[in-house]
Amino acid sequence: MKSLVLVAALLPLSALAETREERVAVAADYVDLALAEFDLTAVIETLYQPILQQVAAGGQTLTEAQVAAIRALYLDAFRQPMTDLMREQAGLMADMMTLAEITALRDFYATPEGRSAMAKLPQLTAAQQPGLMQLVGSTSERLMPQVLAIINGDESPAAPTAQP
């Protein structure tokens, strides 16, 4: 009981007064702003680029029609589900953030700077994706023997290292 009183005492009074419905409403405004400025097509296009690169690295040249068909396939498969997933963000935000935090995000993305930042997020993601994929691939490869040792119950698997 003491811990509940302590937690309540540490929370700002405004957090106690706000409701989830209020947070969801403001978060929904934020999501609407984000979707209006967010280039979802650019994000989806980053998903199939590694495939195109792998095909090219294998020596095969795709025609413009083949690339267009792959693009259309990905856009058709991902546009609505990703939009729906992004819309679900309002409830998640309401569960994780205060009304003041959500309001600050919404208000920032309503500014010219915020809209500009939102529009650049797909390019940022695309620029980081190759390095992230390389990091995940090389690190996973290096960790797999240790993971298998843990799974197989070996006494003392080697400690993971931070660098390859």
Results as ranks from 00 to 15, higher is better:
Glu101Tyr: 07
Thr46Pro: 00
Ala90Asp: 07
Asp107Arg: 05
Met97Leu: 15
Ala127Asn: 12
Glu88Leu: 15
Ala68Asp: 13
Leu75Ala: 05
Val43Tyr: 11
Leu75Met: 13
Tyr74Pro: 01
Leu33Trp: 00
Asp95Leu: 01
Ala25Lys: 11
Ile70Lys: 05
Ala126Val: 04
Thr61Asp: 13
Met133Trp: 02
Met133Asn: 14
Phe108Asn: 08
Glu22Trp: 04
Gln60Pro: 01
Gln49Trp: 02
Leu40Val: 09
Thr139Asp: 01
Leu92Trp: 01
Ala69Ser: 13
Asp32Lys: 09
Met118Gly: 02
Ala65Asp: 15
Ala68Arg: 07
Pro122Arg: 10
Met96Val: 02
Tyr74Leu: 07
Gln49Asp: 10
Met97Tyr: 14
Ala117Leu: 15
Phe108Glu: 08
Arg106Pro: 02
Ser3Ala: 11
Arg115Tyr: 02
Gln66Cys: 12
Pro112Tyr: 07
Ile70Tyr: 06
Pro112Ala: 11
Leu121Thr: 14
Leu40Phe: 05
Pro130Gln: 08
Asp84Arg: 09
Glu18Trp: 04
Phe108Lys: 08
Thr83Pro: 06
Met93Val: 00
Tyr109Phe: 14
Ala69Arg: 12
Asp32Ser: 10
Ala77Val: 12
Glu22Ser: 14
Pro50Phe: 10
Met144Tyr: 05
Gly58Pro: 03
Thr103Trp: 01
Asp39Val: 03
Thr19Lys: 09
Ala104Cys: 02
Thr111Cys: 04
Gly59Leu: 05
Met82Thr: 12
Pro50Trp: 08
Glu141Pro: 04
Asp39Pro: 04
Leu6Phe: 13
Ala117Tyr: 13
Ala17Ile: 13
Met144His: 05
Arg79Met: 11
Glu64Trp: 00
Ala27Phe: 02
Ser14Leu: 06
Ala119Trp: 08
Leu121Gln: 15
Val7Cys: 11
Gln66Tyr: 12
Ile51Cys: 01
Leu62Phe: 15
Ala94Met: 04
Ile70Arg: 08
Met97Ser: 02
Tyr30Arg: 02
Phe78Ile: 04
Ala36Met: 02
Ala119Cys: 02
Ala77Asp: 09
Thr98Leu: 06
Leu35Cys: 07
Gln80Asn: 03
Ala34Trp: 04
Glu141Cys: 03
Leu121Tyr: 12
Ala68Pro: 07
Ala69Pro: 07
Arg87Pro: 00
Ala8Cys: 11
Gln49Ile: 02
Leu13Ile: 07
Glu101Gln: 15
Ala77Gly: 09
Gln146Asp: 12
Glu21Tyr: 04
Pro112Glu: 14
Val24Gly: 11
Glu113Thr: 06
Met144Phe: 10
Leu40Arg: 13
Ser138Ala: 12
Ile70Asp: 06
Asp95Ile: 01
Leu73Pro: 00
Gly58Asn: 14
Tyr109Met: 12
Met118Val: 15
Val55Ser: 01
Thr139Trp: 01
Pro122Asn: 10
Gln60Ile: 10
Pro81Tyr: 09
Ser3Cys: 03
Ala127Gln: 13
Leu92Lys: 10
Ser116Arg: 15
Gln49Met: 13
